[in-house]
């Protein structure tokens, strides 16, 4: 069988196709993160029509606070995640947790199922309740700037 090339393989075309195929991969991490934040924003607006954007400062406060309203062994987010977002943390069973700061761990907050799962678990463990969309958005915004 003879293969007929219909589109002439011009070098410029090849470069263009390659560049296009690379683009989404490069942009994907921050794009996915933006999508997740946008989702939180949508939910926050539904709850409170006066919603005026997320705040990294509030996110930091949540991260560093010691609410101790959840389970006794997990008084704060920093029980497992290091106080320094750029440093590694440790689970209570002693396993390493990669830094939460996006600058250190670029794939953070890019898988919405994973993000939701851990917010559900960790907020229940630390706060004794699920986190609001506002808290989640603030937290991710804070970590994205770190």
């Amino acid at each position: 069988m003879k293969i007929r090339i219909i589109v002439p393989l011009h070098p410029k075309l090849i470069i263009a196709v390659l560049a296009l195929s690379l683009l989404p991969i490069q942009g994907s991490a921050s794009e996915l993160r933006q999508q997740i934040i946008a989702g939180f924003a949508q939910d926050a607006k539904l709850k409170n029509s006066g919603f005026a954007g997320f705040s990294a400062g509030r996110g930091q406060t949540l991260f560093l606070s010691k609410p101790a309203t959840g389970k006794p062994d997990t008084p704060s987010c920093t029980t497992c995640h290091s106080i320094n977002p750029a440093a590694k943390g440790q689970t209570r069973a002693g396993k390493e947790i990669a830094p939460m700061a996006v600058s250190k761990t670029p794939e953070r907050f890019t898988d919405s199922k994973k993000v939701e799962k851990w917010f559900r678990r960790n907020c229940k463990s630390v706060l004794g309740r699920i986190c609001t969309a506002l808290e989640k958005g603030d937290f991710v915004t804070f970590m994205s700037n770190q």
């Binding site: 389970k71 006794p72 209570r92 559900r120 678990r121």
Partner: peptide
Amino acid sequence: LSDHYGEDASLD
């Protein structure tokens, strides 16, 4: 799993 040795480890 939602009360797993002092932690919430719940799954869908």
